[in-house]
Nucleic acid binder design. Sequence first.
DNA 1: ATCGTCGCCGCAATCGTTTGCACGATATGA
DNA 2: TCATATCGTGCAAACGATTGCGGCGACGAT
Lengths: 342, 342
Amino acid sequence: MKLGQVTIKDIARELNVSTSTVSRALKDYPGISDDTKKKVKDLAEKLHYRPNAVALSLRKSKSFTIGVIIPEVVHFFFSTVISGIEEIAYANGYNVILCQTNEKLQRELSSIETMLDNQIDGLLVSFSKETENFDHFTKLMEQNFPIVFFDRVPDIENTVNVTVNDFKGAYDATKHLIEQGYKNIIHLAGPKTLPISAKRKDGYKQALQDHQMILNPEWIIPCPIGTQEESYEITKTLFKSNENHPDAIFASNDIAAAGAMMAVKELGLKVPEDVGIVGFSNWQFSSMIDPPLSSVEQPGFEMGEKATAMLLEMIEKKKESNWEAKTIVLETELLVRKSSQK
Amino acid sequence: MKLGQVTIKDIARELNVSTSTVSRALKDYPGISDDTKKKVKDLAEKLHYRPNAVALSLRKSKSFTIGVIIPEVVHFFFSTVISGIEEIAYANGYNVILCQTNEKLQRELSSIETMLDNQIDGLLVSFSKETENFDHFTKLMEQNFPIVFFDRVPDIENTVNVTVNDFKGAYDATKHLIEQGYKNIIHLAGPKTLPISAKRKDGYKQALQDHQMILNPEWIIPCPIGTQEESYEITKTLFKSNENHPDAIFASNDIAAAGAMMAVKELGLKVPEDVGIVGFSNWQFSSMIDPPLSSVEQPGFEMGEKATAMLLEMIEKKKESNWEAKTIVLETELLVRKSSQK
DNA sequence: ATCGTCGCCGCAATCGTTTGCACGATATGA
DNA sequence: TCATATCGTGCAAACGATTGCGGCGACGAT
């Protein structure tokens, strides 16, 4: 990558001084005459000198780059998180390098390796569905490497996390359906490996229990794949086989909710009159479908910001070895739209 | 970023050889005895030695990293392009560093600067809406720095591009509406600064012309912001004020189409009976709204793959100075759904 | 016995930047 | 006049890896 990049040496040669003088002059170090400082700065300006970040990384063992491990960018929620991350990172002079795992553990492992090779200063992680063992993270954390988990946080000790109150979000959504007069509420659950799936399920169960409603275990239906087609098929089968079909659906994400909505509509049932539906995450499309989908909004941008701020703090305080475990929980907001209002 | 990273020196010290020997042994260079090679490799394995990518970058003036400049990741189409880019890049041992411009020129400029500071080997660009001057790119290209433009390609000379046949996509969509019997087709156009907007508009115009239909310039309505709300308002106003309202809409993207659909539905008009609608880009939600939206599918993943493959080729052939200008045009596919079938 | 060859390896420079230390010149004080 | 302080600057090592060149010992050939 030549580009005829101007280096500190070029400036030194031109001015007949040493590279050390140039370096110090540019940084306004004491012990350099104002005259020299001015000359150096002027020439640097004129030649469009920009320090070589790679050389700096090598010298300082610090790259001012953070790595982000994310399942998928297409996931609307994650794309908003990314924006939050970039915002804080850039504002503090850090770069962001991003890797999608596509929900594959293998990809997660190899991405982390290459990122480490590139001397990232810290890691922001939302792990894949396949990740059930966290040794690759604990190993790093034992070496005092800064890691912050967001959204999908592992169920292990001494981690720093930013997450959302999935329990309460699910609780609120279910409670809302109950208050609307729906009696038989099923839950389309997320992948079992993800703690967030469990928390949402728990919120659903707790809401039913608090309102003296029967909890039918058969009405908690896992959707491990997470596509719209999957929930479409599941819902269709369920509603067809049951003359006493459920009258409401709380889905652990909007994609599943949308699939379910298509299914019930196709069966001639009306939303929200016959079936109420609430989703989770408030995807971009949720307000555009018919009827508009009620959903639990997660503060993605804020999550990105918070997680990054914490990571940068850890990075800058690196010396003071152990940082305490900490979990920030952000609150969700139930957006009631037409799909759940009788 | 210490991490107690093992270096080539650690291996050298342990084995009482020089670092040069270790380096050569690891790379299977000639002139090192099989015995030494084995010892070095075994120890490297045992200590989990991994070469320091930063040191390599500095030494070789090559970072095996490519930069990607993209308007927004939330944009469904772009997120699929990213996947295509990562696919090819990783397969060839390259890293990807990604920056969103959020459609801001300032962000575009500063992102490029920091990426260059980090010694990227090449750049993949889809520029922002605000970018009307391309000097920051031409300056780099004059210095023989590898750049490939994708989707949004600049209207300047000697560039390497991957784009989609926007003209034909728009032409096909409009033709389809005509063949369905719609008579008064309006066009919700994209931001004027983007060449793709112009091409889509041209395709629309050509289709009307080829079918002896009147081209009413007032029915080409710009949507410079690109939000759903904008097209919603525009459509509502237009349809309300005209008792002789149009009977079809070709929108330059699905978001605008969705907004328009909401507007006409709210006015009591039926889609597709009263108004036919076709969008562009085939967003994730397009098949989920009611009625499902017809749209022009763009091969995003393939675009990412092609662009990256071309960029890597340019990088590896760097020495042979000038690469020829080239534009790959990928074909679109019209997905006919319910929103446009009378 | 001498020379050439070859196999195996180390020295040192290099990439661009930072930084501890020392050096020379001038100024200050006794 | 000489020791000492102060100021401005340069030398050289360091970060981790690569690589051209040269050295050294062993061996075969003459």
